[in-house]
Design a protein around this nucleic acid. Structure first.
Length: 782
DNA sequence: CATCCAGGCCTTTTT
DNA sequence: GGCCTGGATG
């Protein structure tokens, strides 16, 4: 008997001990599924002597993957776990595709486009197809293409599908298929895959290249999948192909926690799994080890309102616990204050640490009020979500250089840096280069390399030549140097780092620090040992690094153990647990979202989301909602969420804060926070000021005695019919000139350098203007 | 060619 | 309330 088995309950042990054949573990919230998964992996290795190289575990987030790996290591007391293939679908497939790229015609240093890059490509092709970008908004198009890919519908299938055509026609977007096709072709030409391509191409690889299929089928003898309820059809088909040889597939999921249908996830996968294999073992984990009885009761009551679930009965041995506190506040700011005050109270009286607390909400925009109130009480916090470190402008700029060096076909990256820092290759030149590239069916990079054949002006040509020479220089260094050395050299010779260093504004300093941090991260990457395998390009090279960082999220850079209050969306909180949870913004139109109340399916997903947030809490759960809040800059009134009514009254402890009548303070911490906040609508601002001090200075309002600056209206001038700009190199004071917009005038004086001459012109209709001759077009009249 | 500002548009949720 | 885009301007 292995001692790691002793901590398991009967069902859990059953799931761990089952070795060969398909198994589905229906794991309720907090029922120890990670424990089961990790123990199962450990058991396969320790007991069944399965080689760690032959186990594949797919997770939903990098965080989950990392945790799983660490826990297996802990159980086994050795470093064998390092060889496991554990990662997100996206990162594991990226790794495979890197090794097999040649089959699909991609370079193995293919770029992975994040959402912004992808939308950039969409903008480009919509433009090139002369379509209206108001109709074909990048967001809309991106989502449509993404859904298609997640359902394994390629551009050809898309064009052929009658139903899809009808949908697009009805939506007044008949050219969607055309855009999809152009987009896919452009990405391929750029040597780039978007997130969804990682799935789609993985599927194509396994489907169309039997030798690749059998290679990975033989490699992955055991496959485990976490958060199975959130997989989409593409992922499903890939798993089916990969597992077809051994059928040792273990999926773990909870239909009640399926919250990613907007990403193409479908619960169907759970039902289909049982149909696809004859002898699926099903194990239900129903005992919850996380939460108090009250919390579990409430969760069960809520989810009961959904139709058609896998029947299960989540129960717990834990203590009854406290009631759920339901708190109404007057405004979103009061909600913030209430939460911050309560946290302070809990720390004081209940010895709760910052890190025990999470504030969870439906939309990222809700974080603002909490940030402000936490800052006022000096409670340290961290926000998950929002921009990943690698999506910040300055970091992305630097990364774009590296991308171009690793994959010069990457047009998005190329466009980003070709004139950054400014080197005189402007929009006109870029547009021209792209058009040349399209008409000659070569990459933009190739146009630049052969620029002299395309008739650029000599100045531009020189700038292009310098740029090309620099990139080429780095490319020759590529085989000899590691990612860090290259990155460091890029920072130096582009002056990028220096430029940021010289910017002493607050943001400038932050930007400089971010780039330094980027360099550190690259260094760390090059110094961390990594398991390499035959046939893999897994090296310390730049390409590997770049592919990896695109798949990192914001959460991956944060220390999960830091003693800070955590703020995040409910989606981001999936799989996590906290002693104290604030579920905020339980209001109609916000939660459930106004976008998701039109069909039963949508509403049920919102309810599952509510279920998820409830079951994150171990001991204390607060549900808050505000009477009114700011949205899009204007104040709106919200009814309490319909989900609140689904909680039986006996589990609730109702209170209001920051206005309205006060009921009872309940059994928690004396309620002094409420006493201080009984301000009500009218004076809550003043009350707050007394408590917290004056709010941070707002931008000073324009004093009323200063008249608003009258906009200097330009008197319209219609240029002479055959307006042709003159050569103004030798323009002298006293000459009469015509300006396209300002009309006729006389040159008053000449200043500026020969490089950048500036003429002061007195116009007949528009007064005196300084005209930069390099840019403005003047016709010399006499 | 680059920068600044006004006005439009937005918000689900994420690898 | 904040971000991005596009037009005006030097």
């Amino acid at each position: 008997m292995h001692d790691y088995l002793s901590g398991l309950n009967e069902r859990q042990r059953e799931a761990v001990l089952h070795c060969n054949g398909p198994i589905m573990i229906v794991a309720g919230a907090g029922s120890g599924k990670t424990k089961v998964l990790t123990t199962r992996i450990a058991h396969l290795m320790a007991h069944h002597k399965v080689d760690s190289f032959n186990i594949l575990a797919l997770t939903f987030t990098n965080k989950a993957a990392k945790e799983m790996k660490e826990r297996v290591e802990k159980i086994l007391h050795n470093t064998e776990a390092r060889n496991l293939y554990i990662g997100t679908f996206h990162s594991v497939f990226a790794r495979v595709l890197r090794a097999e790229a040649h089959h699909l015609g991609y370079p193995n240093s293919f770029t992975i486009y994040d959402t912004d890059d992808a939308k950039g490509v969409i903008k480009t092709v919509v433009n090139e197809l002369n379509l209206d970008d108001k109709v074909y908004k990048p967001n809309v198009v991106y989502n449509r293409i993404s859904s298609a890919k997640n359902a394994l519908v390629g551009p050809e299938e898309y064009a052929r599908d009658y139903g899809i055509q009808q949908e697009d026609l009805r939506a007044n977007r008949p050219a969607m298929g055309q855009i999809y096709d152009a987009y896919a072709k452009r990405c391929f030409k750029n040597g780039a895959m978007d997130f969804d391509d990682l799935l789609l191409n993985m599927y194509k690889l396994l489907k169309n290249y039997p030798e690749a299929l059998s290679k990975y089928q033989r490699k992955f003898k055991y496959i485990l999948i976490d958060e199975y309820q959130d997989t989409n059809p593409a992922q499903y088909e890939i798993i089916k192909l990969l597992g077809a040889m051994h059928e040792n597939i273990c999926v773990v999921g909870d239909d009640a926690q399926s919250i990613y249908s907007f990403r193409g996830a479908t619960i169907e996968n759970i039902l289909q799994f049982q149909k696809d294999y004859d002898d699926v073992k099903v194990v239900k984990l129903e005992q919850n080890y996380r939460s108090s009885q009250n919390i579990i009761h409430v969760a069960n009551e809520v989810i009961k309102n959904n139709k058609g679930q896998i029947p299960k009965n989540l129960w717990t041995d834990n203590a009854e616990g406290e009631k759920i506190k339901l708190v109404r506040t007057a405004s979103d700011n009061d909600e913030g204050k209430f939460v911050a005050d309560t946290i302070k109270e809990l720390k004081l009286r209940n010895h709760i640490s910052n890190k025990d607390v999470a504030i969870l909400y439906r939309t990222n925009a809700q974080s603002r009020a909490f940030e402000e109130s936490l800052r006022r009480l000096a409670i340290p916090y961290i926000i998950y979500g929002g921009l990943s470190f690698y999506q910040r402008k300055e970091v992305k700029d630097m990364v774009a250089y590296l991308r171009v060096i690793a994959n010069p076909k990457d047009e998005e990256a190329l466009k980003r840096i070709i004139n950054y820092p400014v080197r005189g290759i402007g929009k006109t030149t870029i547009d021209k280069a792209v058009i040349f590239a399209n008409t000659h069916n070569i990459s933009m990079w190739e146009v630049l390399v052969n620029a002299q054949q395309f008739g650029f002006k000599s100045g531009t040509l020189e700038a292009i030549d310098q740029f090309v020479t620099m990139i080429k220089m780095f490319q020759t260094e590529l085989p000899k140097r590691n990612a860090y050395e290259i990155a460091f050299a890029v920072g130096k010779s582009t002056n990028l780092v220096k430029e940021l260093f010289n910017d002493k504004s607050t943001e400038g300093v932050a930007r400089y620090e971010n780039v330094q941090e980027l360099l550190n991260s690259i260094k760390e990457f090059t110094e961390t040992p990594m398991n390499e395998e035959d046939g893999e390009v897994g090296d310390k090279g730049l390409g590997t690094y770049l592919q990896q960082i695109t798949l990192l999220t914001d959460a991956d850079n944060k220390d999960p153990d830091a003693d800070v209050v955590k703020l995040m969306t409910i989606h981001a909180a999936k799989g996590l647990e906290f002693p104290v949870v604030f579920a905020a913004g339980l209001e109609e139109t916000l939660f459930p979202s106004a976008m998701s109340i039109n069909t039963r399916e949508e509403l049920e997903e919102e309810r599952r989301l509510f279920y998820v947030v409830i079951t994150r809490a171990k001991q204390k759960l607060y549900i808050t909602h505000a009477n009114s809040r700011y949205r899009f800059g204007s104040l709106i009134q919200n009814e309490p969420s319909r989900f609140i009514e689904e909680i039986p009254n006996e589990f609730l402890d109702r209170t209001s804060a920051g206005g309205g009548p006060r009921n009872q303070t309940g059994s928690w911490g004396g309620g002094s926070a409420f006493d201080r906040m009984r301000g009500g609508y009218g004076n809550s601002a003043q009350e707050a000021e007394k408590q917290y001090g004056a709010p941070p200075a707002k931008k000073a309002a324009t004093p009323s005695y200063i008249a608003p600056k009258p906009a200097a209206k330009t008197v319209e001038h219609v240029p002479t019919k055959d307006f042709v700009p003159s050569d103004t190199t030798n323009l002298q004071a006293g000459q009469k000139v015509e300006h396209q917009k300002f009309g006729f005038g006389v040159v008053d004086k000449m200043e500026g350098s020969a490089h950048n001459p500036i003429a002061t012109v007195k116009f007949e209709l528009n007064g005196e203007k300084k005209i930069m001759l390099n840019y403005a077009k003047l016709r010399i009249v006499e």
